[in-house]
């Protein structure tokens, strides 16, 4: 087999997120366990950067939020379950996780209405449309008129989804302005905790240190997201087990040739 374009080596290029990323924290707890990511891994700070890097490298492998997957990369089947929306929705795909909106205390006023909108059937339909995993819509009595400003900050996994939700909400209520910004899950927790944002976004659970620092934080599961393990479209490998993924990212399997698979 030859995966590389004009190269003899099929050495795997491991592309990971940086320490502190919510996606990395989830990947570590679910896939890696106690195995440390090899120190030869390329580290890039955004979902999109990892997708572009894998799209450009025939031997690359990376992990990103399913919402970022496009035709330039192939999401691998994990433990025999392909990363389709149906499988994720049905809870069969092993790597899915809740995404959180965080507020300091119970949300009030226009912020509460926005969160309720996101959890409603209309909001969850947008969630599914964007490639994330929806939940049962909660009933929501949409008010006639709303005025105000909302700021949301945090997880880059949630960012594109939050933008879509905010745009729809602002269309419904033209006098509401919502600003969405990124920064990562830890920034989301901090911002909601210290009140610099009305809503914080996190793609991981709160750490115990964070709960101690900000005891008032309320979490709202706003959607579920699958973490896709992605490879280049030319790569003949189309599925791995969770154990193999951990061995690859741990540096134990360093070459695509070491993997047994059915050639297509």
């Amino acid at each position: 087999m030859s995966v590389g374009c004009g190269r003899d080596s099929d050495a795997i290029t491991i592309i990971s997120r940086e320490e502190g990323s919510g996606t990395r924290a989830y990947f570590k707890s679910t896939v890696m366990g106690d195995t440390l990511t090899t120190d030869g891994a390329i580290l890039l700070p955004y979902n999109g950067a990892i997708r572009n890097a894998v799209a450009g490298d025939p031997n690359g492998i990376g992990y990103i939020s399913r919402g970022y997957v496009d035709s330039a990369v192939i999401p691998l089947a994990i433990d025999g379950v392909s990363c389709t929306l149906e499988n994720c929705q049905a809870g069969k795909y092993p790597l899915s996780r809740p995404l959180y909106f965080l507020t300091s205390g119970e949300a009030t006023g226009v912020t509460a209405e926005f969160i309720n909108f996101c959890l409603s059937d209309a909001g969850q339909t947008i969630v599914a449309d964007e490639g994330y995993i929806r939940q049962e819509g909660k009933p929501w009595d949409s008010p006639q008129k709303l005025i105000g400003n909302i700021s949301e900050r945090g997880s880059t996994t949630i960012q594109p989804l939050a933008e879509k939700l905010a745009n729809r909400f602002m269309k419904l209520y033209p006098e509401v302005t919502i600003t969405i910004s990124g920064g990562g899950s830890s920034v989301g927790v901090k911002s909601a905790g210290n009140g610099t944002a009305d809503i914080g976004a996190a793609s991981r659970e709160l750490k115990s240190s964070e709960m101690e620092e900000y005891p008032d934080l309320k979490t709202h599961v706003m959607a579920y997201d699958a973490v896709a393990i992605i490879v280049h479209p030319d790569n003949p490998v189309h599925g791995l087990t969770t154990g193999e993924v951990a061995q690859i990212f741990g540096g134990e399997i360093a070459d695509w040739k070491e993997l047994e698979f059915v050639e297509l």
Binding site: R7, N52, A53, G56, D57
Partner: peptide
């Protein structure tokens, strides 16, 4: 990232 990294990859390594 789009042009230099793939070029360096032709020489060897991951390009990054």
């Amino acid at each position: 990232m789009m042009f230099i990294v793939p070029l360096v990859r032709e020489i060897g390594g991951t390009g990054f």
